[in-house]
């Protein structure tokens, strides 16, 4: 038993248009174990977000394999995929654009419960209250609309919605980048607690390597669609081997 939840092999994706062609992903391979956080760092345009979207099957790759618990994710039929989508969820950078502005927070979190048929109708209200509580929000939040709550609360709602379908892997794409520093620390602690309690795996993408270092067990450094370095977070951050890794880490601002 390897304990790998996700295994990715040779993922490639090329975007072409107007005579230009960009290799957004170039032969990307990695794995994430159960209960593990893999951090992805890299400069803008290195392919981090394309990778997230390919894993969610929001974009089809040109080549490569995605195995979840040994099962080929890319060969799932549309029907089977619909059933399994709940296994991988995503939290985006800007929660305001990730929600229907007219719906209530309660409904936004209930939708995935309904779609993925988690529990019976009457038990879903209890599930909603429990989800809100797990991300540190009070139950009366359910009747409010997303624009009525603060940025930090919004991102907790996005996390609650992602957790609703009981995912095994949550992809966080710059999920903390828009938050104030104090809120960012609280969210990091919340993610770590959820992971310890429930064994969820995270793919944590961030443009701020210092934040990625705090929460990741292992780190992959991306540049121009390739993984140029990967290893334990401690090792990569204390002694980066790739030029990209060195440059990213040297540029972290500090007051000390």
């Amino acid at each position: 038993m390897s304990g790998d939840l996700l295994m990715v092999e040779g993922l490639s994706k090329r975007f072409a248009g107007r005579g230009r062609s960009v290799r957004a992903l170039d032969d990307v391979s990695f794995s994430i174990r159960k209960g593990e956080t893999l951090g992805i760092v890299g400069p803008s345009g290195s392919g981090k977000s394309t990778l997230a979207r390919v894993l969610l099957r929001l974009i089809e790759p040109d080549a490569g394999r995605i195995l979840i618990d040994g099962e080929d994710w890319r060969s799932l039929s549309p029907k089977a995929l619909r059933h399994r989508r709940g296994d991988i969820q995503m939290v985006f950078q800007d929660p305001l654009s990730a929600f229907n502005p007219r719906t209530t927070i309660g409904k936004a979190i209930m939708d995935p419960l309904r779609i993925h048929a988690v529990g019976k109708r009457h038990s879903r209200m209890a599930a909603l209250a429990e989800l809100l509580q797990r991300v540190g929000l009070s139950a009366d939040m359910a009747s409010r609309r997303i624009h009525e709550v603060s940025g930090g609360q919004r991102q907790r709602v996005a996390l609650a919605r992602a957790l609703a379908s009981r995912p095994r892997l949550v992809v966080l794409d710059e999920a903390l980048s828009a938050l104030d520093v104090s809120l960012r620390g609280q969210m990091l602690e919340l993610l770590v607690r959820l992971q310890r309690d429930e064994g969820i795996s995270f793919l944590f993408i961030g443009h701020d390597p210092a934040v990625v270092r705090m929460i990741s067990h292992r780190v992959a450094v991306m540049d121009q669609g390739r993984i140029v370095e990967t290893g334990d977070a401690d090792a990569v951050f204390s002694d980066p081997r790739s030029d990209t890794g060195k440059a990213l880490i040297a540029a972290i601002p500090t007051w000390r």
């Binding site: 304990g3 174990r33 159960k34 209960g35 593990e36 956080t37 520093v181 104090s182 960012r184 620390g185 990091l188 602690e189 770590v192 992971q195 310890r196 064994g199 701020d208 210092a210 934040v211 270092r213 705090m214 929460i215 990741s216 067990h217 334990d232 977070a233 401690d234 951050f237 880490i249 972290i252 601002p253 500090t254 007051w255 000390r256």
Partner: peptide
């Protein structure tokens, strides 16, 4: 002081260690 304490850089303590992974 609070802003300095919550600032995240290479000196900030990591929240996870290798032992957490099952």
């Amino acid at each position: 002081r609070q802003l300095l304490a919550t600032h995240i850089d290479l000196h900030s303590p990591r929240l996870v260690g290798a032992a957490d992974v099952r």
